[in-house]
């Protein structure tokens, strides 16, 4: 099948590319746009390592087609820090040692940011259920949950 022309915005930068019709958004981000911060843990929507925000909605980029990026605005982990200033979530993850190997971290951070934008004052249970789509095999989630709760507190105070 012929490749399709796609114009899209990722982290406020405009991109144009030719997309294989079967390629996922994750493939496009990683292979075409060289944004390898989004990770592939499963490619079946089960692990959340590929989480990105598309027009304000949290999605697994492995389940979205590259051609669906047309006209959309995408936010990935690479767009989370503001220059050298880390997002409060990123800083809290470091302060809490909420990552061990760090492969799940980009997806968890993107998902947590989407949560706090919707719900600035989540309960522990709400954080746990929101992040239930993001697998982490290293940490047992304890420090991740604490980091998200503390980031929420910090952002509310700001």
């Amino acid at each position: 099948m012929a490749k399709q022309h796609v114009t899209t915005t990722v982290n406020n930068d405009e991109f144009e590319f030719l997309c294989e019709p079967k390629a996922s958004m994750l493939d496009v981000l990683r292979d075409e746009l060289n944004l390898t911060g989004s990770k592939e843990g499963c490619a079946t929507g089960d692990c959340g390592a590929c989480s990105v925000v598309m027009d304000g909605r949290l999605v697994c980029s492995c389940l979205v087609l590259g051609v669906e990026m047309e006209g959309k605005s995408i936010e990935t982990i690479e767009g989370m820090a503001d220059g050298e200033k880390l997002h409060p979530l990123q800083q809290q993850f470091l302060d809490h040692a909420a990552l061990q190997c760090g492969i799940c971290t980009p997806g968890v951070l993107v998902a947590a940011k989407a949560l706090l934008e919707k719900n600035p004052d989540p309960t522990e249970t709400e954080v746990r259920y929101w992040l239930a789509g993001n697998l982490c095999r290293c940490t047992g989630y304890d420090k991740i949950i604490r980091a998200v709760m503390d980031a929420a507190k910090e952002m509310r105070a700001a």
Binding site: R30, L35, T36, G37, S38, K39, E40, T76, I77, E78, M80, A81, L86, Q90, F93, L94, L99, G102, I103, T105, P106, L109
Partner: peptide
């Protein structure tokens, strides 16, 4: 690792 810059196996 919190900014997505770290390079893992597939990167």
């Amino acid at each position: 690792k919190v900014t997505g810059r770290a390079r893992f196996g597939a990167d």
